[in-house]
Design a binder for these strands. Sequence first.
DNA 1: CATGAATGAGCATTCATTCAT
DNA 2: AATGAATGAATGCTCATTCAT
Lengths: 222, 222, 222, 222
Amino acid sequence: MKARPARPARPARRERVHARTKEDIIASAARVFARDGFSGSTMEAIAREADYTAPALYTYFKSKDEIFASLVEALTEEFLGVFEEPTLSGITFVQRLELLLGLLFGLAERRREAFVVFFSLTTNQDLLPRKRGDQPRVPGYLLLLERTAAWFEQFAPKPMLARHPASELAQFLFGVCNAFFMGWLSPENEATPLAKRSKLVLKLFLSGAGNPSATVVPVGDR
Amino acid sequence: MKARPARPARPARRERVHARTKEDIIASAARVFARDGFSGSTMEAIAREADYTAPALYTYFKSKDEIFASLVEALTEEFLGVFEEPTLSGITFVQRLELLLGLLFGLAERRREAFVVFFSLTTNQDLLPRKRGDQPRVPGYLLLLERTAAWFEQFAPKPMLARHPASELAQFLFGVCNAFFMGWLSPENEATPLAKRSKLVLKLFLSGAGNPSATVVPVGDR
Amino acid sequence: MKARPARPARPARRERVHARTKEDIIASAARVFARDGFSGSTMEAIAREADYTAPALYTYFKSKDEIFASLVEALTEEFLGVFEEPTLSGITFVQRLELLLGLLFGLAERRREAFVVFFSLTTNQDLLPRKRGDQPRVPGYLLLLERTAAWFEQFAPKPMLARHPASELAQFLFGVCNAFFMGWLSPENEATPLAKRSKLVLKLFLSGAGNPSATVVPVGDR
Amino acid sequence: MKARPARPARPARRERVHARTKEDIIASAARVFARDGFSGSTMEAIAREADYTAPALYTYFKSKDEIFASLVEALTEEFLGVFEEPTLSGITFVQRLELLLGLLFGLAERRREAFVVFFSLTTNQDLLPRKRGDQPRVPGYLLLLERTAAWFEQFAPKPMLARHPASELAQFLFGVCNAFFMGWLSPENEATPLAKRSKLVLKLFLSGAGNPSATVVPVGDR
DNA sequence: CATGAATGAGCATTCATTCAT
DNA sequence: AATGAATGAATGCTCATTCAT
């Protein structure tokens, strides 16, 4: 028997394939969860979406809950990654915000279904797997909101922060994004590229719909 | 059966009681659906919330789907009702908008759980009962969006409409509202009265977070 | 509307019927468990035996485990009941033992399948529902053994106790019974009435198979 | 493929290794079957016990059933082997019985888990793999019982056989053994060497617990 | 030989719904 | 009108077994 160096590379390949399959399954799960919600999604549906049979999923995940948890974790990581871009110097806040929105919208474009899941974590608890009656966990969404608030704290110009606390700015920004995501997510608008709306969101965030009192109409607000 | 003078009033009372019970059940269902989603909600859970047993619900509704449909219908009606207020004359657009927001926020306050359900119809399909694979129905939410767009078409000042199509204004307004609803819906903020934020929403809608470049302030980011 | 005393009797009847059904199910379960063991028994098989569908069982028991636990509990109670017979005075130990065996054999006759389950608790852990790897619970069987030992302690004549500790006597008695139960339990011997063997067991317990050294053959045991 | 002188010894070694592995697996299976019963034992559990993965077992056995069958067969063979000892002449029946019990108890000591399985074949059908509803096969245990009866037929002294048919003697002997095996099998008694009880079994078998009436002792129960 | 991956069959359990009372 | 009981149709998950590597 000839001596041969141990083959440490081979198990690595196996692992890579395994990890890749897990990602595939998570991606399929994202589509199904987005379509049917957590309770509404069956292992069989997720499996079918990934071209497997239901029991095969158990080779990769311990349970339906674990699939969902993995999905949320992956999403959170990706979204938070948007904020970890190298901090450019010498650019204005508006440019920086534009950049952020670009990245965010790009991500949404690539991860369409995942996005639905993620944003659903906001309003709707059903996507969260939990024994009925349990306390809801902190949704990944809140993390994102907090991270955005921190971002504003760091980069927003003083006068803006003077008028609005960072958390409020974050909430507002999310609201505006959300509104257009929704439009984009609805089936009929599927074709419209999300990125084009980035500019619009930026403008609305900064200046609103346009204050009529600033234009002509005299307004009697107290 | 002994003869008895016809009492036309009696059946009416019965009907009233019956109708009242239906409303109770719908209200209970709203809480459960908001907490657990459509698939995640069981008839037994809805019944328990309304202090009944599951089979009792079938006296009032044909199915779980019908309960949900009734809930959506009731909500839609209530929300659309906000727009049916007598059209005051001689008030500015901003005053009118303020009025609308006031009514909307008031409704949200009263119908907290229902609100969650309603807004979830936006992003999340799980709340919609449908045989898997069916086309999703037009959610009641879209109706509301359309109605709001129509409202803008009718009342928004020309310059505003020139810059933004009515549907875009509606979407924007909803996004802003949504953002603050969400904050309000999350458990920890439960105490904050929604109405107070009405003013904030109005301001952000009209003027945004404040354009730094427009306000001449030099951006002071590192 | 004429006054009428509250009907406290009705729920009582319901409860009786309910309790009766539980007993029926436990009896059916005993047959199935005896035939196929715990893991080998399916809810569907138990249900079929009791002329129900599997989900119906969940109206009466929370789980398969609970059915089994109820069965063991009921059995233990019945068996221990044998020892609670009124203590007659003025009878010899042998008469008393004969009485005990009679009751025990009678019970075995009436509860044939349950008996198998009960005695299986001795050697075989599979009948015990437990997550694999868990510590086995104290089987009801050991309780019975202990009770029997206590009985010997109380009633056995001094010389017998001097030669054998009570626990040893109990174990011996059980062994002898067991041997004949087994024969009786095996399919081909089904017809032989167990009670007739009671006398034989008594004799073997007291005097053994007959010591050849006591008869003629000289034996060289040290 | 290059020609090579035939090495008739090699395949033999392979076979030996193969056979040895089979034995290892059967021994592991015995432990698992004893602990969890047939239905309760998974291929994975058996494999883990033998430090393999489940599919590896299929290299050695066609199925779970075959593993079990092999186990029972091996056990039966070993137990029957006890009776195949060279028939010594010139010893008394009691000596011969003592010898037999010694061998039997020694085997039980060495094959503890297997023993549980074997004796469970008596009462409990779950250890028997069979399609539900099938007729149970004749358990290996019955073979042993028959062999023992034959042994009594051959060696028991006439007066003993006159009082008890050989099959009854066999049953009685087994009962007594069983009783003390059980005590020995229960976890707390694990330390007690089984062999020491051999003498006790012998005595009880021959003379019973001691007939109070025969020993003239007046029964002193209250 | 041994293993990871994959699957068909099955199983405990849940749930919307029906029905007799 | 309301409920306990019952059930058919899932649904998450397990497991013996096969197969490519």
